[in-house]
């Protein structure tokens, strides 16, 4: 992070929460971090309550008001079908963000389990799991999604499943490398000398020292996953037509983008803002999970 502006001590409560143990000697939680956390939090909140905040029905078609520019009645204008874009962005946040979070969460859990097992389970286990990963990595998400759509019917659900199924091998690879680096560290051995059990060694010593790079990767991936989900919606195997999903909204408005910029700008802004916020949160998380960075070197 480039900015290290000292933070004004306005909200002491939030400050303590963010700095944990009050040990933030170098002001590592900066204004930018806070803004990013704020936006990311807002987006998650939006996923929960967004649809209830929508001032109008996001699905109400009013062709008479087709492509109304932003104004006092429609703050973000309307799309080709005369639907209120603000309402659709608010309602679409739930679809987009929940789908993205679901993909990342499932892929992270599976990837961590498989990666750890491969790193610690011996050569044969490692070999088998990594070959399975190779298969997963060689399948493009879009092909799997098309296949699943054919099997289960096109829906956002099958897009999420397809994406999670093709996303975890990358994490498994990453975790495997990270765990292999840590497992031979001397502090792991010195814990073993104390009679620490194998499970505890993995959970308390190996994984906490391995996963900070994974946290960063997952938060960085939020934007990528969001775009792929939108892409899948675009080719018709993700969110289905009337549903308001940010990517689908942009895709649907591609014909009007030149004459009516507001139809793509606002959902696009929502995607960009969320992506940036999660990237910054990833950076912040990396600092928070590494005590050497958090408290400064000696």
């Amino acid at each position: 992070m480039s900015t290290t502006t000292p933070v004004p001590t306005r909200s002491a409560g939030l400050r303590n929460l963010l700095t944990r143990k009050g040990g933030n000697k170098q002001g590592h939680t900066t204004f930018v971090d806070r803004a990013a956390l704020g936006v990311a939090g807002l987006m998650v909140l939006l996923a929960l309550v967004g649809p209830y905040l929508a001032p109008m029905d996001p699905y109400a078609v009013d062709l008479a008001k087709s492509l109304t520019p932003p104004g006092s009645e429609h703050w973000m204008g309307t799309d080709a079908n005369g639907r209120d874009i603000l309402s659709r962005v608010l309602a679409g946040g739930r679809t987009t963000i929940l789908a993205t979070v679901a993909v990342i969460a499932v892929a992270t859990v599976i990837g961590t389990l498989i990666g750890t097992a491969a790193a610690l389970g011996g050569r044969i286990v490692d070999e088998i799991l990594m070959r399975i990963c190779d298969v997963g990595l060689s399948l493009p998400a879009i092909v799997v999604a098309l296949g699943l759509a054919a099997a289960m019917g096109p829906s956002l659900q099958s897009a999420v499943i397809a994406l999670a199924a093709t996303w975890w091998p990358g994490y498994a690879r990453l975790v495997r490398t990270l765990v292999r680096e840590t497992r031979d560290a001397e502090f792991v051995e010195s814990a073993r000398v104390l009679g620490v059990s194998r499970t505890r060694l993995v959970l308390r010593h190996v994984l906490p020292n391995s996963l900070s790079a994974l946290y960063v990767q997952t938060t960085l991936d939020v934007s990528a996953v969001m775009l792929v989900i939108s892409g899948l919606s675009f080719v018709g195997v993700g969110a289905q037509v009337p549903a308001s999903e940010w990517g689908a909204m942009i895709a649907a408005s591609r014909d009007t983008a030149i004459t009516a910029w507001w139809t793509v700008l606002f959902p696009g802004l929502a995607i960009a803002l969320t992506a940036i916020a999660f990237n910054l949160v990833g950076d912040w998380l990396r600092v928070r999970t590494d005590p050497t960075l958090r408290t400064g070197g000696r």
Binding site: A185, E186, F187, E189, S190, A191, R192, V193, L194, G195, V196, S197, R204, H205, P208, N209, T289, D290, P291, T292
Partner: peptide, 24 residues
């Protein structure tokens, strides 16, 4: 063996930084 380690026989390692867990 695990019951012996730490409780009945302890081992002090050579490199104090390497033998401490950096995130705890």
């Amino acid at each position: 063996v695990r019951r012996v380690r730490g409780a009945r026989a302890g081992l002090v390692f050579q490199d104090p930084l390497a033998s401490l867990n950096p995130v705890k």
